[in-house]
Write a protein that binds this DNA or RNA. Structure first.
Ligand SMILES: [Mn+2]
Ligand SMILES: [Mn+2]
Length: 200
RNA sequence: ACAU
DNA sequence: AAATGT
């Protein structure tokens, strides 16, 4: 193997290291570590100076447990300005977006987290793909397990489509024996969910 | 308290 | 700082 340099943007002591052993000590077991290898020292120093954590994302994913890397991640968000809800799913291995739905007015975070999981299960089931689905929402895991969305959100003139989607999701869960595990995304260990919408 |  | 949930 040719010599490499290692940039650690987020780790115990951020910096540029000239050996994997040294870099690894900064990064292993560190929540949301961001790091990447380079083939020249100049490249590495430039990348560290630029604080380019985006290029680090791909490398950081490689540090996830192999079982996690084979899965899909979902997340939901309410845009702070207008309160519109969106949810989406990404393939963890490469961050490619599988679907994104929204905007939904008069919604909640938890409804979004719930629908995101169910839509992912439906997408995977339709393709006979048994990969696990990761969510950061304990609440949504429970709702999916019970095939019931226990939201307290009132119905309004603007959320008919949302409640229709919830009913359809519950119906699908009750009728369909899917074979995917729905697992907790360990934000504490692995950092932000790759399906996260950013801006938090 | 825990998770969003 | 506020809201959604078990
Ligand atoms: Mn989330
Ligand atoms: Mn998020």
């Amino acid at each position: 193997m040719a010599k490499k340099w290692y940039v650690v943007w987020r780790g115990r002591v951020p910096g540029v290291y000239d050996a994997w052993d040294a870099a690894r000590a900064q990064v292993e077991g560190y929540p949301n570590a961001a790091y990447k290898s380079f083939t020249s020292e100049a490249e590495a120093l430039a990348a560290f100076a630029a604080g380019d954590a985006h290029t680090a994302a791909q490398q950081t994913r490689a540090a996830l447990p192999p079982k996690v890397r084979t899965g899909y991640a979902v997340d939901a968000a309410l845009s702070s300005a207008d309160g519109l809800m969106f949810y989406r799913c990404v393939r963890i291995a490469d961050g490619v977006e599988i679907f994104r739905h929204g905007p939904f007015p008069d919604a909640t975070n938890n409804i979004g987290e719930f629908l995101a999981i169910v839509d992912a299960l439906r997408w995977l089931t339709a393709r006979a793909d048994r990969s696990p689905v990761f969510t950061d929402s304990n609440n949504a895991i429970l709702w999916v397990a019970h095939a019931h969305c226990a939201t307290r959100l009132p119905r309004t003139a603007n959320n008919d489509a949302l409640f229709a989607r919830i009913a359809e999701a519950e119906r699908w869960l009750m009728e369909t024996p899917y074979c995917n595990a729905v697992l907790k995304w360990r934000t504490d260990l692995w950092g932000e969910n790759p399906a996260d919408f950013g801006r938090k």
